[in-house]
């Protein structure tokens, strides 16, 4: 190894460390701040370690209401986007080349549309029929782009589906519906579960779109953002820490499950 290489390598390790620091410092500092007695969330100066902010957060009715609102929204978003995304994927894969690329462009367009625009457009459309911002519009606006994610995940899974399984089932006398229920749907299950998880996360974390259609509702992200601007205390950090913990545990569990499934799939896929 030449000297130049060694310097280059050292620089890169330094860069890598800096990157990791950049990645985690905000999360760590934010989490740490929730244990500081200071009224404003910070780590410097450290005024003493306390769990008071967790208690304060726990006692905050508005926080619980926001959480509940987010949960309700996420639930309905999943209920809408899983069937719609699956349907979109199936329709897409049965289309012929030209119609397919057109449909594809249309179907992924919400992903390329800024979130605020989606919120605004939904708000404007529903105003025509006298529906203002609120739970309904939050669900609809979020679903309109979360469906894309479901669609993409299902399409990816469908690419590995062996269509002769469907024919085999039909040939054994199954109705089209039974073929769908017993053969295709079980095959899609892992993708559907994964996209349901993703949909919940996306729904919980969405801010830009929700902001415009929320009406008088306050989902969790809006609650937090409002707190930051109007009365930030480390109670918000306490909430953040818990949310981070939940998402990190969820993400790790998801990733582990995905790896295990990959292995299982490899075992279950019949060699041809």
């Amino acid at each position: 190894m030449s000297g130049a290489d060694r310097i280059f390598r050292a620089l890169f390790v330094f860069y890598l460390a800096g990157f990791a620091f950049y990645l985690f410092a905000p999360l760590v500092i934010m989490s740490a701040a929730s244990f500081n007695e200071s009224r404003f969330p910070t780590v410097i100066p450290w005024q003493g370690t306390t769990l008071d902010w967790f208690r304060a957060m726990w006692a905050d009715r508005a926080m619980w209401e926001a959480l509940w609102t987010s949960a309700v929204v996420a639930f309905f978003v999943v209920v809408i986007s899983i069937p719609a995304g699956t349907a979109a994927a199936l329709v897409l894969t049965t289309l012929h080349a030209r119609a397919r690329s057109f449909a594809y462009a249309l179907m992924v367009s919400p992903l390329l549309t800024p979130g605020v625009v989606i919120g605004i457009a939904t708000l404007i459309l529903w105003r025509q029929v006298g529906v203002g911002g609120g739970l309904l519009l939050i669900v609809i606006a979020q679903a309109s782009f979360i469906i894309c994610y479901v669609m993409l995940m299902v399409v990816a899974r469908l690419q590995r589906f062996d269509r002769t399984q469907e024919e085999a089932a039909l040939g054994l006398g199954a109705s089209r519906f039974m073929v769908f229920r017993r053969v295709l749907l079980p095959f899609l299950r892992p993708a559907l579960l994964a996209s349901a998880g993703l949909a919940v996360l996306q729904s919980f974390e969405n801010y830009n779109t929700t902001l415009f259609v929320r009406g008088f509702e306050t989902p969790l992200t809006v609650f937090i953002a409002t707190k930051v601007r109007t009365g930030l205390t480390p109670a918000v950090n306490a909430l953040a820490l818990i949310m981070i913990a939940v998402t990190v545990i969820g993400a790790v569990a998801y990733e582990l499950a995905r790896r295990r499934r990959l292995r299982d799939n490899r075992a279950a896929d019949l060699p041809h």
Partner: peptide, 28 residues
């Protein structure tokens, strides 16, 4: 991959909040 994906799973508002605290005038 894990280290990258984990922060990404954390809410954008919260991630921004982290920076808000770091960059505060009297912040770290």
């Amino acid at each position: 991959l894990m280290a990258l994906i984990v922060p990404f799973f954390v809410n954008e508002v919260l991630r921004t909040l982290g920076w808000y605290i770091i960059l505060a005038y009297r912040g770290p």
